[in-house]
Design a protein around this nucleic acid. Structure first.
Lengths: 242, 242
DNA sequence: CGGTTTTTTGATCTCTATCAACTATTGTGG
DNA sequence: CCACAATAGTTGATAGAGATCAAAAAACCG
């Protein structure tokens, strides 16, 4: 539950009453999924909102000819289909990256809590906005940055997001992504991604081994990526290495 | 106002009361902007919601080194910063593509109408969701499609959206985009875009001259682009050429 | 430990970027 | 309405980033 609070309380902390209302979301049924398993597929009726409790998930879209693009990552404390739950059909798929546990929350419960606690409703809305801002930043990434810059940007974003929810240790964090995943997120082939990865290592920017990501030089990383964390609204308390 | 209604009434038509409540948004002050002029810039406080009345606008993001990525197009009947108006800082910029007129609507007015008319609130929410779905489709476009496919997809999307708001004439429509704009949207250089454009002409797919877009073969266009209009929720009444 | 998944390497090809004109079109003021 | 300037579209030549194919080496897993 901690990651959810850290996500939502970045702007204004909640009252005890608000916190406990939110905490009741934990009573929603908890599902578990093994790693690498689909959660919802494009075309499905989302039915309910999901809240990631532990593990990572990812959004993606497959093309008829087999190409795949990863659209974003869902970390602990992130909602899946918060707004989309009103629609009858998912426009993209979501899958588990690691072993995953998540709450399935009826849309009515979200509505009710938002109705009763305007500040929570506001925090939900802001979360959705940050999600949209991330999409837009990825558009710039895919449209206008080189493979090297993209990868740098991707790592910078992930690291800041993990920092926000308290899942970093110094300049390290867990990162369950394979080079294949990274390639599908960065819009390059895995071969090219591998070579780009080696270059980042040589340059002393980041290192990724045995599912741990080491940020060797955040400033330089942010610099080559032209990364400006403002769109993530990290909040004042948190400042990546600064 | 017609485009707004066509946008919002795709799923369920409104009652007369709902329609007239929406129509009152027209009373909001109307601004006019010449073509090619900035409307809001990244970092600005959005302050209010904008509703495009006539003309096209575009969302974009500039990189410090001069590269630019277009993030999407705002057509008549589209809101700008519907949800984002709650945030204090725009994460991207918006500019006029053509001479533009738009209503500036206080966020409170939106809230009030959404409060009084749940079906309108729902329609607003769906619009936001379609906006997010468009972003996601663009991510696939930029990440996984070739320049030729991207351009085909872009035209297919624009045409369907224009059809929804009744701004097409047969298989033609107005299209004020320069090749430079198209290049910035497709994430390629304008030189390459020009050559891609010529290929599309040779292939008998689309033709763009003197600001008019001619769709020569929509089916084949959709086919090469792997374009599936579902994410746009075009509604049943409208079906591009089918 | 054997089998699977992931990472790495090498060689080659192709798409897209770059640079630098040049032509056509559009728009404007006289 | 023409003349000129500015904008937009087109062309050619060359360079470079990233794709593709195929296979080997490493890491991981039960």
């Amino acid at each position: 539950m901690e990651p959810l609070f850290r996500n939502l309380e970045r702007f204004a902390p909640f009252t005890d009453e608000e916190r406990s209302a939110l905490a009741r979301l934990q009573d929603s049924p908890l599902s578990r999924s093994p790693a690498r398993q689909p959660i919802i597929s494009e075309g499905d009726n989302p039915g309910a909102v999901r809240l990631v409790a532990t593990g990572w998930a990812y959004r993606f879209k497959d093309l008829p000819d087999g190409r795949r693009q990863i659209l974003g990552f869902c970390l602990p404390g992130d909602f899946v289909a918060l707004g989309a739950a009103t629609l009858d059909e998912m426009d993209h798929s979501v899958g588990a990256l690691t072993a995953l546990s998540y709450h399935t929350i009826r849309h009515g419960d979200i509505d009710r809590i938002a109705q009763s606690y305007p500040r929570i409703a506001e925090a939900f809305a802001r979360q959705e906005q940050v999600g949209a801002a991330i999409h837009r930043e990825w558009l710039v990434n895919l449209g206008r940055r080189s493979a090297f810059e993209r990868l740098a940007h991707l790592f910078a974003e992930l690291f800041v997001r993990l920092e926000v929810i308290g899942m970093t240790q110094g300049r390290e964090c867990r990162c369950p992504l394979t080079q294949n995943d990274l390639a599908d997120a960065a819009g390059v082939t895995s071969v090219h991604l591998n070579r780009t990865m080696q270059e980042m290592r040589r340059e002393g920017l980041v290192e990724l081994k045995s599912k741990r990501l080491h940020i060797l030089d955040f400033d330089r990383l942010a610099d080559v990526a032209m990364f400006n964390p403002a769109y993530l609204r990290p909040g004042r308390q948190m400042r990546a290495f600064a």
